[in-house]
């Protein structure tokens, strides 16, 4: 079973606290006055959150690295799409 590391409810709690901290940082980054830079930060933080959930909560750390990489690729493709969309908007706005 690709269950969570048996010895580590503490690791799960640490991952949860890290996720909440990253969410707080994300709210802060969204307020930045440079939209593209703020967006890069927000998407980077979302990527880190996906990595934490997949590695620690889903228990893919070590047990299924291929699936972990695939999940990160899914997130990366959408993040790059979002970034491309923002660049298009910025260019259109001049």
């Amino acid at each position: 079973m690709s269950s969570v590391d048996p010895s580590n409810p503490r690791r799960l709690t640490f991952a949860w606290l890290a996720l909440l901290a990253l969410s707080g940082a994300s709210a802060f980054a969204a307020q930045l006055s440079w939209p593209v830079i703020g967006l890069v930060f927000v998407l980077g933080l979302a990527f880190l959150k996906v990595r934490l959930v997949a590695r620690d909560f889903m228990g893919l750390r070590g047990s299924n690295p291929t699936m972990l990489r695939a999940l990160l690729c899914w997130c990366l493709v959408l993040a790059l799409g979002a970034l491309a969309r923002t660049l298009v908007v910025s260019v259109a706005a001049g």
């Binding site: 269950s3 969570v4 048996p6 409810p9 799960l12 709690t13 949860w16 996720l19 620690d56 909560f57």
Partner: peptide
């Protein structure tokens, strides 16, 4: 939702 996910992960922890 993240807190809920944490609880679900604790439920699957082998030493729970």
């Amino acid at each position: 939702l993240l807190t809920s996910g944490w609880q679900a992960a604790l439920a699957t922890s082998a030493n729970a």
